[in-house]
Amino acid sequence: MKLASMVSAIAILTVAAAVATAGESTGGLALGTKVPAAVAKTKMKNVDGKMLSITDVTGKAGTLVVFTCNHCPFAKDWEQRIVELGNTYAAKGIGVILVNANDPKMHADDGYEEMQARAKSRGMKVPYVVDDTSGVARAFGASVTPEAFLFDKSGKLAYHGTIDDNRQEPDKVTARYLKDALDAVVAGKKPAVPETKGLGCSIKFRS
């Protein structure tokens, strides 16, 4: 391992440990906080083969990080909506990155080639990357797929939570949590509902 990579890995582990400790009471990154620099600069392999970090995709209006995956039925139910929101708001100045932190040894569907196929079949215009140590997910305090973290243009966490209030029936959604938060951030406002929760699969962290 190169020295720079080692330093970066140690920094992530240190931050992850600190967040994990704080996460017992806060559930991860707190609203109003920024992604720790070492985490934001972590390079992750995109489905197009390029290495990307959260810093690389940061948008002028804000940045959306969604922890998701291929195998989870919850993530699959919301997948098309996540992709549509990503594609739509990327064009409105939001930097978007979808992150798969699952260990593919737990679910082969979460392998890199399977991610490439999914990105193609879903028409993803935004990056879908591999968190190959699960270190980024740990540092965020993410525990569920899907789980969204939306940062405003100053890099502060403005929204954290799920996509909307009806996973199974998109036509019966009454609260579009993430879309409303994206609209607020694009408009330079604070989301009216900054934190939500939804049932989801546990992230299958790499050991």
């Binding site: 525990s143 799920t162 209030d165 939804g198 049932l199 989801g200």
Partner: peptide
Amino acid sequence: IKRGNDMAFIDALDPKWKGALP
């Protein structure tokens, strides 16, 4: 089989729970 709003369900069982199974 649970139906209805996830957040109310999750918070009724434990507000610290983020919704991951099991």
